[in-house]
Write a protein that binds this DNA or RNA. Structure first.
Length: 388
RNA sequence: GGGCAGGUACCGAAGCGGUCAAACGGGGCAGACUGUAAAUCUGCUGGCUCAGCCUUCAGAGGUUCGAAUCCUCUCCUGCCCA
């Protein structure tokens, strides 16, 4: 049993407290482990995975996972770590996101053994009287303890009242689902503690707080998030996933080793090699071994010692001779990479030498291209296509 | 409700009648160097049919040959007072 505690507390940021957790485990029943998520964006990424992997651990030990979809709270927006008010989402948007979210979450946790609940089920029906009663359970001073609020207040930035409701609601979720343990990122500490207070207020045994480190994004300093664009999505294509992981800094690697693939980082290994292992291993987890091997081979062909000719590249149809370069490239961006680029943007890429045909820079924006089958056109750092 | 200070490009922030598509910083992108890493250096960073033109400085009007800059009204935010 102390084994269990050690395992569960591994790679956590904050546990309050081990003793309480031990007490709960002694109860000799499956514990109810709560994780609340606000489906504000559809895709989940490696940052979410850190928490889901922890849930999986609990699950494997026979505990009951309670996944709360914050369909109601998502419409408010968690102000955690934010310096500005988040724009609200409609309920339809939230529900669409929720579906994608759970589908992806079940790549990690076992669907059969997971209880999924929506907090709209209780909040949407709550009469205003009850809302007031709920609000009476906490003080303004308590809420203002929170770092985000304090800071915004100090910086003379607005704090809207609905934002102050957020921790209260998240806390109330704990009462409703009767959780024994709540898991969250470090930025959730405050909210989870509110849950403890509310549970105590209802005469319940307070939940154990277990927070996990926030995974830094690819840029290495901000936390991984969709809106910052520094994320790796769980369902991204193998080559995409591989490439993104290869772009992280060496400093970040040990972090990713423990939080993403759960391995020890061997600092004597060549960094390049270590990173390839990280990338390969990650692809393996979310796709399969074959895809991972393939992604690696492909990467090496494209950027390493291998041959570009052997790499798997998206193919684009061969244009007529003397094709206007700008419009042709613009078309590839939209058709093949689903990216809107203005002509000015593409002109810039051309002038700066980003566009390369079989390794040769094409720097004249007015030039025309005459391509033949098998030519490799490089658009920017990450994107190349083959004429097919 | 009263007083004051503000709302500028992705963000922060200059500009306060013409030389403003708008300084500077951050971010982003590209090039060089590399390990498609980091650091560093360089360039770019509203749009277009690109030596020219078009649309921007909260919104709507107005003054002026000319407005991000002046005036009026509206909307929004912060601070202080009630």
């Amino acid at each position: 049993m102390s084994d269990q505690i050690t395992q569960l507390c591994q790679d956590t940021e904050h546990v309050h407290s081990r003793e309480e957790l031990a007490e709960k485990l002694k109860l000799d029943r499956p514990l109810r482990i709560k994780l609340g998520v606000d489906p504000t964006a559809p895709d989940i990424h490696l940052g979410h995975a850190v928490q889901l992997r922890k849930l999986r651990q609990f699950q494997d030990l026979g505990h009951q996972i309670v996944l709360i979809i914050g369909d109601f709270t998502a419409m408010i927006g968690d102000p955690s770590g934010r310096s500005v008010t988040r724009p609200p989402l409609t309920h339809e948007e939230v529900m669409v996101n929720a579906k994608t979210f759970t589908d992806q979450a079940f790549l990690i946790i076992d669907k059969e053994k997971t209880e999924v609940v929506y907090n709209g089920d209780w909040f949407a029906k709550m009469p205003f009287q009850e809302v007031i009663k709920l609000n009476a359970k906490v003080t303004m001073q308590q809420m203002l303890q929170r770092e985000d609020f304090k800071k915004r207040l100090a910086d003379k930035q607005e704090v809207r009242l609905h934002e102050i409701q957020y921790p209260i609601m998240q806390g109330w979720d704990s009462v409703v689902v009767n959780s024994d343990v709540e898991i969250g990122g470090t930025d959730q500490l405050f909210n989870i503690l509110v849950g403890r207070d509310l549970q105590k207020g209802e005469g319940m045994s307070p939940q154990v707080v277990l927070t996990l480190p926030l995974l830094e994004g690819l840029d290495g300093n901000k936390k991984m998030s969709k809106s910052l664009g520094n994320y790796v999505g769980l369902t991204e294509a193998p080559s995409e996933m591989f490439g993104k992981l290869m772009s992280i800094s060496d400093e970040l690697m040990p972090r990713y080793y423990s939080l993403v693939i759960g391995e020890d980082f061997d600092k004597d290994r060549h960094p390049m090699e270590a990173k390839k292992h990280l990338a390969q291993r990650t692809v393996e987890i979310y796709h399969d071994t074959e895809a991972a091997t393939q992604a690696r081979a492909d990467f090496e062909n494209k950027f390493g010692k291998g041959k570009v000719e052997d790499a798997e590249l998206p193919e684009v149809p061969c244009p007529p001779a003397e094709t206007q370069m700008l419009s042709y490239i613009s078309q590839i961006y939209t058709d093949t990479f689903d990216q809107m680029r203005s002509n000015a943007d593409i002109r810039r890429l051309v002038q700066q030498g980003s566009i390369q045909l079989n390794g040769e820079k094409q720097t004249d924006p007015k030039a025309t291209l005459t391509l033949k089958l098998g030519d490799v056109l490089k658009l920017d750092k990450k994107r190349m296509v083959r004429i097919g």
